[in-house]
């Protein structure tokens, strides 16, 4: 799989998880959607998201390391996961 194909597969999986946790497909329409300001994700949802991403991609994301600002939009979350998958 090429790099861009891999990135696209990661993006699709991340958006699928995010859609399930937030209960809205809007996260696909606007990757810069401000998840916390727009009442889409709360602190509990953030922890659920981290746990789910860790299991799906077999990457280590300890909730204790998570700064909320770095996870505040679908694009930032995708970039975060891509970086961690590449470091595996």
């Amino acid at each position: 799989m090429s790099n861009s194909q891999e990135q696209s597969a990661i993006q699709e999986k991340v958006l699928g998880i995010l859609e399930e946790i937030t209960g809205t497909g809007e996260i696909r329409n606007n990757l810069d959607l401000s998840l916390f300001d727009e009442y889409v994700l709360d602190s509990l949802g953030l922890v659920q998201l981290i746990v789910s991403l860790s299991e799906t991609f077999a990457i280590k994301i300890a909730p204790a390391e998570v700064e909320r600002d770095q996870w505040s939009s679908p694009r930032k979350i995708i970039e975060n996961v891509e970086k961690r998958v590449a470091q595996k």
Binding site: S43, L46, V47, P63, A64, E65, R68
Partner: peptide
Amino acid sequence: DVSNPAQLHK
């Protein structure tokens, strides 16, 4: 603390 897992842990 509650809205920031890293801070809560600390």
